[in-house]
Design a protein around this nucleic acid. Structure first.
Length: 258
DNA sequence: ATGACTCGCAACGCGAGA
């Protein structure tokens, strides 16, 4: 089963690129972020034509997440518990052939001296609680998404330039490690030890051409999923296309159960 | 170099992104 995560930065602006990529990459499951539309605006028919079912948790203009699957889609559940006042559409879970998957659009948190940073850290605490609950179920789990976390200095072109940023601050990294240390595996890092492989390149300053990127899109696997991990990678081709998202897909493959 | 890009919106510049 091939599972990918992709922050598309507007599904409407990205639809031709997304359809092309679905046809060529042939993922079984896509964990999508920043669709930037309400549920009714999601191009469901075009994607269903390629054999996918869609679960959508949208929001007007900002955020919004979706799960695409061509191998079934059951028990869909939106929102992250722990803050009933949180109206931002950033979390959606579903089950595909016994694998519990979540699409995650973790808050950016900048500026780090604003109220946005405590919101990010609070959101990470809520995610940790949910991640722990899922671990207790002792089943394959894949938590994929735009974490807005640069885990280590191997995951950024210029760590000094990012100093103090909400994506790299020690508190951010510690909160991310807390989730990993529950027992989750970073699928890409487990398969690709090479440093300086990125999933995001800013639109500005020729960052893509100069490979000035950051690795912030991650697939975290429970032990039962990690036991089935066959391969993982970053598909940088979509980032080089016309009208590209600033993020590119990160994927992993899980062996089918016995 | 007071820059640099892209998105949605009911806009005709702005906030947000990272």
């Amino acid at each position: 089963m091939k599972i990918a995560t992709w922050n598309v930065n507007s599904i409407k602006a990205r639809l031709p690129n997304v359809l092309d990529w679905l046809k060529t990459a042939e993922p079984d499951v896509v964990l999508m972020q920043e669709i930037k539309t309400v549920d009714e605006g999601f191009p469901r028919l075009e994607i269903e034509d390629l054999g996918y079912q869609c679960a959508v948790h949208g929001q007007k203009s900002y955020n919004g997440v979706a799960i695409l699957s061509r191998r079934g889609l059951e028990d869909v559940s939106a929102r992250l518990a722990g803050d009933d006042a949180d109206e931002q559409a950033r979390y959606l879970e579903a089950t595909v052939e016994g694998v519990r998957v979540a699409t995650i659009y973790l808050p950016n948190g900048n500026p780090a001296d604003s109220e946005k940073y405590p919101y990010k850290l609070g959101w990470m605490k809520r995610l940790k609680a949910r991640a722990a609950e899922l671990l207790a179920e002792e089943r394959p789990v894949v938590l994929g998404g735009d974490y807005n976390v640069i885990p280590t200095d191997d995951d950024v072109h210029d760590p000094v330039a990012w100093q103090g940023d909400a994506l790299i601050r020690p508190e951010t990294r510690a909160a991310f490690r807390e989730i990993l240390y529950l027992g989750y595996t970073d699928a890409f890092r487990a398969k690709v030890p090479t440093p300086h492989r990125y999933s995001f390149w800013d639109y500005q300053g020729g960052a893509w051409q100069k490979d000035h990127g950051i690795r912030i899109d991650h697939l975290l696997l429970s032990p039962q999923a990690a036991d089935r991990l066959q391969d993982a990678g970053i598909d940088s081709k979509p980032r080089g296309k016309e009208k590209a998202s600033d993020h590119t897909p990160v994927w992993c493959t899980l062996a089918d159960p016995e």
